[in-house]
Design a protein around this nucleic acid. Sequence first.
DNA 1: CAATATACGACCGTACTGGTCCAATTTCAG
DNA 2: CTGAAATTGGACCAGTACGGTCGTATATTG
Lengths: 134, 134
Amino acid sequence: MIRLSKKVEYGLIAIRHIATKPAGEIVTAKEIADTYGIPYELLSKVLQKLTKSGLITSHQGMRGGYALARPPVEIPVSLIISAIEGTRQAIVQCLSEGPQTCNVFTVCTIKSPLTKVQANIERAFSTMNLSEIV
Amino acid sequence: MIRLSKKVEYGLIAIRHIATKPAGEIVTAKEIADTYGIPYELLSKVLQKLTKSGLITSHQGMRGGYALARPPVEIPVSLIISAIEGTRQAIVQCLSEGPQTCNVFTVCTIKSPLTKVQANIERAFSTMNLSEIV
DNA sequence: CAATATACGACCGTACTGGTCCAATTTCAG
DNA sequence: CTGAAATTGGACCAGTACGGTCGTATATTG
């Protein structure tokens, strides 16, 4: 039907793992990769994206790693997803990109009905926060 | 965030177009393709899938075309999507394919939390039927 | 018989995805 | 101050899915 990318899966697993630790504790990418059998380099990229969007903080150098930037309650699942996927805002191209890239934009008849479904999905992801998946 | 494929978009537009006609009226793929500027061959494939899953009926030969197989109220949007996409049942691989293909299946910690989101999304698509998007 | 329609398989280019490799940089511990 | 451990970031690659096209077979009707 609809699928989250592997990167998002890894990101969710990782940030959840961090959230299970005592607040402020620093976790390395290697630890997470080893724990779940996730490719280390790929996971690193994902964690870097989460860092750039301010959901987690990074600490370079020896004894470095990652920690949550805010309490889990303030991290909705929707933010985690959009931090990793970046683009792809809407379920139909029209809604997010408009006439430039959608060839049927002007004659499209399903845009407005689908905004309801869209809102529903967004609500599903934004009402659930990190504290609910630990 | 999450995106419906172009085929599904075309399928929704097409079946909606058929639904706007008087019940039983036959519409050709060409008419739909021309109306919305959709590639004819691609649309044909989509309509064939909708036919195979029993949502619409096809009539070959001259004066042939497609018509709804049931009243619009009995055609949930979810059926249209799964008819066209076939596979891809769940938002995370684990949920639909299990341990064979998911490398983190046994240690995955986000499966069960995400089933709630999953159910939410499915409800969003299955509670909306064709009569609501015409 | 000919025109019109669906049915179906093969094919193609592009883009994205998951994954790997490598080098640079920062930081702390000894 | 040096080296190990960690993040950062760019390049790259194989596989696959997607959107789209083409050609052909088959059915139906006028």
